[in-house]
Amino acid sequence: MTNETLRIEPLSPALGARISGVDLSRELEEEGWKAIEKAFHDHSVLIFPAQEITVAQMKRFCQRFGELLVHEHLLPFTLEGHPECMRLHNDAQRPPGLNTWHTDNSGWARPPLGTVLHSRILPELGGDTLFSSMYQAYEALSPPMRELFERLGAVHDTRKAFGPDYASLQRSLSKNGIDADKHFAHHEPVEHPLVKTHPVTGRKALYVSAPYVTHIRGLSKAESQALLDFLYRHIETSEFIYRHRWSKNDLVIWDNRCTQHLAVADYYPRERLMYRMNIADGARN
């Protein structure tokens, strides 16, 4: 692969680009990798169509971005011999889980840099994934609101994300032998700033994730909830969003530091199978 064969096609003004002319079953040459890395930082979400790859080849590509994470509570959902690869399998017996806007694993001190999905089985209809640019969400705020949010931090708690508020996730873990209450009982909440500066691009982005956030530090309960409700509606603004309609063997990678996503659960009870990997972020807040 050379830069002459690699093509980058933006998919919306806000974020997202299709990368063609790439075969991820083969080793990437350095020139091609540098072009992909730049596109990742330019567009936040990259789509690689028609990638017939093995799990080992998927891992090799993901590891170009960083170390792959192993999540202890997700081990029952992973592929044998590949603890980094989660098997997201939904059908009539396994309903879809989280059907709300979020960024992955924000309840940890160092959330993942990025997430990668490879589509294996798709429903005939439905199952799209929406992505929202948190760069755009921040930049669309008025200067006084930017200044306010830049001074504030939100508390993120895994016990909320895997608690009764999101019972489908709790039930899914329980069916696979994990008691979420016990597993996360000693997992301390963490605080993340409501506005983060991306370590590579230098752009500011909103950082909030509804399943995990319990409150904004230093505000009254009413003040905190009013601001959070505003942010949750604000990130849904159409101009910030790219909607991806999946095709079989699409590989999609997104930057958790500057995006949120929503996996639309409208395909139930049809079958959908995705392989997922999380890439570790070595940078501190």
Rank of each mutant, 00 (worst) to 15 (best):
R146Y: 01
P143G: 03
L194K: 03
P199V: 09
H118Q: 13
H192G: 04
D179K: 04
I235F: 09
H187R: 12
G153N: 12
Y267C: 03
L169M: 13
G127P: 03
K175V: 06
N99F: 09
E67L: 10
F184G: 04
L28S: 13
G202R: 09
P111H: 10
E139T: 12
A222I: 11
R270K: 14
L141K: 05
R110I: 01
P13N: 10
H234D: 02
K221Q: 15
R26G: 06
P143S: 07
Q63Y: 01
L11H: 04
P123V: 04
T259H: 05
R26C: 13
R233N: 15
T100Q: 05
R171M: 12
Y242R: 02
W33P: 01
A180R: 02
H198E: 06
P111V: 05
Y232V: 02
G218D: 11
G97S: 10
Y232P: 01
L28V: 10
W246F: 11
L68S: 08
A154H: 05
H215I: 00
E31V: 10
K59I: 13
A185M: 07
H41F: 15
S106P: 08
T214N: 06
M1H: 07
H43I: 01
H192E: 07
N90T: 14
R171G: 02
R146G: 01
D250E: 10
R203N: 12
P13W: 05
A140I: 00
K204R: 15
V155E: 15
T129E: 06
D91E: 09
S209G: 09
K204N: 11
T259S: 12
H186Y: 08
V252M: 10
V45K: 07
R110N: 14
V200L: 07
F184K: 09
H89C: 06
E37G: 02
F240G: 03
I121W: 03
H198Q: 09
S133D: 03
E30Q: 15
I279R: 02
T201A: 05
Y242D: 02
R276Q: 15
R245P: 01
